[in-house]
Design a protein around this nucleic acid. Structure first.
Length: 139
DNA sequence: GCCAACGTTGGC
DNA sequence: GCCAACGTTGGC
């Protein structure tokens, strides 16, 4: 059971938009980066990921669950690009800011800190537990 | 809004 | 196959 992190600019696609899609969820489209795509290809049904607001917000606001494994991205005809579907699972009681993550030595290896440009990234089990605790939600 | 870091493209 | 040019991302 792997854990992930999805980044989105809230002005384009934010947590509220994700929640509005309910149980059906929505495809995580628009990814045009091989590393990010490969991460999505590796995702299994039911795996969980953090939902992070980039650019404005700079914080993890909730948890999403993969509700469909990788399939072609319908927003392009280019067969290279695939994406998964995710649905909102629960919000954090307290959003966890990038500042908090950077300040925590236990989280210094996070991709979020070291490769800020990767929009879909893996999260280690220990990182997952620490951030869930900081966000005051169950892991 | 700026710009550094990074990924991709395309000419050679 | 190299690498300069270009475009995009995202923190600040």
């Amino acid at each position: 059971m792997a854990f992930w992190l999805f980044k989105s600019e809230p002005d384009v696609w934010g947590w509220d938009a994700q929640v509005a899609k309910g149980e059906v969820g929505e495809q995580w489209d628009g990814v045009r980066n091989y590393q990010a795509r490969n991460n999505m290809r590796a995702m299994k049904l039911g795996e969980k990921g953090f939902f992070y607001h980039s650019r404005t917000g700079l914080e993890i606001v909730g948890i999403v669950e993969v509700c469909a494994e990788a399939h072609p991205d319908t927003t392009t005809d280019d067969p290279r690009w695939e994406c998964v579907d995710v649905k909102a699972l629960r919000p954090f009681t307290k959003p966890v800011t990038l500042e908090t993550i950077k300040a925590d030595p236990r989280l210094k290896d996070m991709v979020l800190v070291n490769n800020s440009r990767l929009s879909v990234q893996p999260v280690r089990d220990d990182e997952w537990r620490i951030i869930c605790a900081l966000g005051e939600t169950e892991a």
